[in-house]
Amino acid sequence: MKDDKVVWRWWWGWNTEKVENWLEEMEQKGWNLVKVDFAQIRFSFKKGESRKMSYCFDYPAYVKDNYFEIFKEDGWESMDNKMGPWFIWSKSYENERPSIYTDTKSLIEKNNRQIRTVIFGVFVTLFLLSLVLLGNFDSTKLISALLILSIVFYGYIIVQLRQNNKKLKQNAIKC
């Protein structure tokens, strides 16, 4: 039996719960996560002991040293390099699954930070598009088509994030 496993897995920022749950199931089956790379979609596992682990994907605001300090002191381990913008944290537990976010507002803000980044991306793409259209190169049509396609992609992400926020708000009687 092989002791290593590499899995490519795409995930979306509005539904990190899905990939977190998957990692936790892998850990329970004894596949311990050892590395995450390639823009955080390639997951490398090693066969070991079954572990009860909590995984949390964070998209924080400006990251400074004290970001890592707070997590480390609270017993979280960082899976990846310290580049961001996404950070994968893990912590082993026994009874109640710990989470890095403990209220709805924090989850909504995590989505809002992503929305701001994507909107910035839309503006950058529009700027590039105007350059390409003004420049009139040989491949203008192809490049502008690709840029327009990426704007559509960004739009899709924004819609999904906003819908997720709406759901979070509806479920919250408490603030």
Partner: peptide
């Protein structure tokens, strides 16, 4: 009340 590390960092930076 257990404030999670992410919730704490978010609150402090904001």
């Amino acid at each position: 009340i257990n404030i999670g590390a992410g919730t704490m960092y978010g609150n402090l930076s904001r």
